[in-house]
Structure formats: structure tokens, C-alpha cells
Design a protein around this nucleic acid. Sequence first.
DNA 1: CTCGCCACCTGGGGGC
DNA 2: TGCCCCCAGGTGGCGA
Length: 269
Amino acid sequence: MPELPEVEVTRLGIEPSVIGRPITAVVVRDSRLRWPVTPAVRSLAGKVVGGVGRRGKYLLVDCGDGHLIVHLGMSGSLRMVPAAAPAGRHDHVDIVFGANALRLRDPRRFGAVLWAAGDVHRHRLLAHLGVEPLSGDFDGRRLHAITRGHRTAIKNLLMDARRIVGVGNIYASESLYRAGIRPQTPADRLSPERCARLARAVRGVLRAAIRAGGSSLRDFVGAQGEHGCFQQAYKVYGRAGEPCRVCSAPVRRIVQGQRSTFYCPGCQR
DNA sequence: CTCGCCACCTGGGGGC
DNA sequence: TGCCCCCAGGTGGCGA
């Protein structure tokens, strides 16, 4: 999926076109997402959207008396399209606003569309989530506290949503490169200074990716169908064997927690 | 608690 | 063309 920047770019893209507008219909072509799309989602017509929020990689469409929770999984995109535009094979759900519709396309069907009545932050999928890396609550001191007592590799901890949300496989590698830290380093061995550098790196990488409009990963497209250009800016992700742009050492690929990790053996210690 | 691993699903690319 | 294998953005849930 889309990691935090892609979700945020989607949020920024769709909010202006749905805020204050009534949902006129919900079309579910295939309810077999990560969890079945329930009847409650199908009966949202008439509710007015108050705004679109985000918690980690979850989009939260405020419908007044509840929220539509949308997750893009690994391959999802949410775009505003003409409601009459023919739906493709993987266009599973439309939230219709008159002549236009928010269309969820998700080839792998790891995404989700759920209805949450009441306090959305108490929802079982959100209640356990960790700190927002772009919020004022996240800095070196906080990261240092989070890492204490965890001997797991720092890369795995960065991707653990119970501690820090939004940092996925790509930006975890990129952040560690920017901070000059080896991904295998046990989390609780990082000094306060290195935690400060890493926290700055995480925020910087996520911000840069949002500014660039998200990454152009395979089928990721933003809310208006545009492709982001951050992929060109990858320093290590997907560059195994290619020279580091700074020191020319070949970028290495290793596997951590069954996911690929990329790092520069020269720049990261 | 923490940790490592699995599963869910489809499609694209490379090698033969 | 076809087949087979590997790889891919996430994350809840399981057992150790």
C-alpha cells in the first residue's frame, strides 16, 4: 500500500471534493475485502461528510454520527471519478456523491471499508495504534522512550504500528539511510542522539514524500489519478547492487521479518 | 508482554 | 506464447 504519505496525499486530494456533501448512494460490487463490507456501509445514503481525517494509514470519513474507515491495503487507491465511468475489474466500492464517486480500486483486496459508529478512535483497529510521526508528540525523546526495552531490530520497530504508525517498508529503509543507522541495530542500543537523528529523518522523509505527491509504486495513483514522483528520490529502496549515491558502495538487500530491507554498508553504521 | 511468523489476494516480471 | 517461480506497499492474529 500506500504508506502514510500516499494515504495523506489521498486524503488531501479527496477532502475538498467531499466535505459538506451528502452521500447519495453506496455501490458495493465486491464485498470480499480484508473484512466483508457490511450492510451498514451500504446504507450510508443521506449522510453528510464533515471531513476526512487520517490515523496512521487509515482514512476516516466523518459522517456525523459515525465514520467510514477506509484502508488501502497494499494495492488500493481511492479516487474521485465520474459516477458513470465504467468500473474496472478491481473497482470494488463506490461512495457516490451525485455525479461523482469516490472509487476504491484494490487488486489484492487487502484493503478495508468499515462503518464505525460513535468514537472512531476507540474502534478496535485504531485503539492500539502508536504515535503519529508527523505530530508534535513525536521527537527524539519520544523515540528513545519507545525503543527502550526492545531488542528487536530498529527497522522492525519503526514498522510496528503499535508504537509508531505510518512507516511502511519503503520509508523505513529510507529513514534509516537518512539517519545513517543500520537497520539491524537493536532498538534499545540507540543513543538519545541517534534517536533524535532518526526521528528527524522519519519526519523529513515522510514530509518530502507528501510534498512530492506520494510514490509512484506500481498501481498507486492519487485521488485525481496522478502519479507521484517521490520514487525517483529513493536513496536505497529497490537499489540492491547499485552504488550508493553518496559513497558509491553497493546498496545491500537483506530480509527482516520476511520483508526486504535496503541499506548502504558505507553510510549506515 | 514480546517476538517471529503466517495468512489473506492478485498481478507483474524474469527465466526457460 | 506458456508455465513456473519469485516478488510486491500492510497488518491482524497466532503460537512460542
